[in-house]
Write a protein that binds this DNA or RNA. Sequence first.
DNA 1: ATTGTAAGAAACGCAACCGTTCCTTATGGT
DNA 2: ACCATAAGGAACGGTTGCGTTTCTTACAAT
Lengths: 194, 194
Amino acid sequence: MTAATEPGRATRRRGDALLDAIYAAVMEELAEVGYPALSIERVAERARTGKASIYRRWPTRLDLVLGAIDHVMPRLDDVPDTGNIRDDLLLVLRRIGAVMGSRNGIAARACVDGTDDELARAVRERLIPPRKEMMLALLHRAAGRGEINADAVTQRIAETGPMLLHGELLQRGVITDAAISEIVDEVLLPLLRA
Amino acid sequence: MTAATEPGRATRRRGDALLDAIYAAVMEELAEVGYPALSIERVAERARTGKASIYRRWPTRLDLVLGAIDHVMPRLDDVPDTGNIRDDLLLVLRRIGAVMGSRNGIAARACVDGTDDELARAVRERLIPPRKEMMLALLHRAAGRGEINADAVTQRIAETGPMLLHGELLQRGVITDAAISEIVDEVLLPLLRA
DNA sequence: ATTGTAAGAAACGCAACCGTTCCTTATGGT
DNA sequence: ACCATAAGGAACGGTTGCGTTTCTTACAAT
């Protein structure tokens, strides 16, 4: 009847197009109400699909949410290497901060900080170790160059940057560039050179 | 008919006894399902009272929750003063850590970390500034004694200890004494003496 | 002992979700 | 052009929570 590409009327999607829409809807719901209050019904409505298409694919709410996080959270790829520890730190913290502050980051945080232990553990295991490894790689390289004290490269200090970013977001609601510089210059670098 | 102090049958409470029961029930619910999924119905059931007694007192869910937090979270009283910055830090972080890890601490964290901005802001404003002031008081005294570098006593560093405790709880689920010692000896003291 | 107050319990109509089923028709593959 | 597949929608009965109302009765104050 009407043209296939009518504006208001979304055409019927399959495969990845549909998956993407559902995953996006899950992240939005997570960010807004968190996991315990997330309802399949609203996810379906948001993704402009039916509940059946969701129940057909995921047996439980937990599977759906973990699927969404796996699909949507950026795998971090290249470790920055400017040849300068300060610039490396600024880059990596800015990148982590940007992810944390994004809509998907807020959704993921709602899971990590949330009240469901199983979900929190699963999401933590996915997101935290890679960031920590990245920090450690960076610090080891700097120690090799003699820029920082090799004894200061510990698990604890590798965690400190991301933890402070997280705290910053919790306390102030936003991660500014000034805050990142402060964390680097006032906390991390003094520690690494101690 | 039966004796007034019959064991299984709780007698009808008024005033503070009832208030305490309701507030405790709110904190339990917060810790288990968080704010968006907290229902007045379950709070009433948990407190062994009726919904009417709750609606009679608090106009909204938010008022109820804030009331519970105000009533239940410990006001921190004396600033520790051992004459030694390391011991002061250990004491204060242990105290904060104990509160964070308690049932009420978990409930409060569910609010602070949660998805409701209004609630998160209100709870943050109640809990964070006093802790931060405590840290600052402690650090200023130590600087006065010449134990640490006066230039190192900044807002940021005063926040760092509690933030790392928070991160510790999120990542490992528990705050051990070993973790506190590590934070003090590996992060805070080196920074303060830099 | 009497009396005002509010606790506790039950029920109201209403709305949101649950997880499932059924039907249609658009869509991609052949 | 045909056809198997699954998307999109609607409706199912059941549960949970909403916020309010009503009633009985335990309690505290006098």
